[in-house]
């Protein structure tokens, strides 16, 4: 794990052992955090399942937490989440990868030193600000004039999805740029010596060689997009419905959690318990993506 030199003597004063214990405890706080998250979600979700059957939760196609008759089928929230994340990735993958290529293979060091921090600024903007931009600029001044008032409203999966895409694009650009820059110069020069043009070198040498980093960046971006809360709860609306029409207003899992938490929901109510069940579902989604990204890096990595 670490490659730092260790002291040759095995003798350790007591003070050294105390310090090492304190340092270890700090590092172990992360495990406590994980355990806390898992325990809270598992226990509260089990309580929810005593009121609502897991079968209804996982297979039901109607979700209504506010209006009677209540319905607890999580699929509309899942489809809303996937719809927004898909739109985000349709925006973020091409734009992010093209930007990464520009940074790694075309830009001069000076341009790169200016543009890369600027792009990363976008990822640093508070997401609530991006949500405000979606509702006050993108939807009324771009999407509605283009698509027409009768086709799209202020709140839509499209408007939220595009802005979530904007949020995760720098993540893809930045990590993919690092991955492509890590491809050794000799491989590029070999291809040039064969008479390849710059585009051919990028497409047939650099891109395949950096594919593990690029794929990992895309999966991480998808995971970020699924977990994003503030943009979607402002811009996408709060209408849980099983649809894949991007101009519709939907509700994501995160937006539902926010809605319940904001509202005056009693803490022992079914609605509040549902919050935990939805959060557990969300966590499983992101966890699978994060594990997948780690696996992709290990499986496709090539050392040069």
């Amino acid at each position: 794990m670490t490659s730092v030199p260790v002291p040759l003597t095995r003798r350790r004063p007591r003070s050294e052992r105390v310090i090492e214990t304190l340092l270890f405890l700090s590092a172990a706080l992360g495990v406590l955090t994980t355990a806390g998250i898992v325990l809270v979600l598992v226990f509260q979700t089990l309580e929810f399942f005593q009121v609502v059957s897991p079968v209804e939760f996982f297979t039901g196609t109607r979700w209504s937490a506010g209006i009677r008759p209540y319905a607890w089928g999580v699929l509309p929230l899942v489809s809303g989440t996937i719809l927004v994340a898909t739109i985000a990735m349709i925006v973020a993958v091409p734009v992010g990868l093209l930007a990464a290529v520009l940074l790694s293979d075309y830009a001069s060091p000076r341009v790169r030193a200016t543009v890369k921090p600027l792009l990363e600024t976008i990822a640093g903007i508070p997401t609530i600000v991006l949500g405000f931009f979606a509702v006050n600029f993108l939807a009324p001044q771009v999407l509605i004039p283009i698509l027409g008032k009768q086709n799209i409203g202020t709140f839509s999966a499209l408007s939220g999805g595009i802005i979530v895409g904007l949020l995760v694009t720098p993540l893809i650009a930045s990590i993919s740029d690092d991955a492509m820059r890590a491809v050794p110069r000799g491989m590029r020069e070999g291809a040039y010596a064969m008479g390849a043009t710059k585009f051919e070198v990028i497409r047939k040498v650099v891109f395949p060689a950096a594919i593990s980093g690029i794929m990992a960046s895309i999966i991480l971006a998808a995971s970020r997009a699924i977990g994003e809360t503030m943009i979607v709860s402002l811009a996408v609306g709060d209408k849980p419905q099983l649809t894949f029409d991007p101009t519709e207003s939907v509700q994501t899992m995160t937006a539902f959690i926010a809605q319940i938490a904001i509202g005056e929901t009693a803490q022992g109510s079914v609605q509040f318990k549902a919050l935990f069940a939805v959060a557990a579902t969300l966590l499983v989604f992101t966890l699978v993506l994060n594990l997948l990204s780690g696996w992709v890096v290990r499986r496709f990595r090539t050392e040069y």
Partner: peptide, 20 residues
């Protein structure tokens, strides 16, 4: 385990931390 755990925690959605 400590190391893997920390990199996985970095990927947990922020709203989940609110629940914790």
């Amino acid at each position: 385990v400590l190391q893997t755990n920390i990199s996985n925690l970095a990927g947990v959605p922020s709203i989940i931390y609110g629940i914790l």
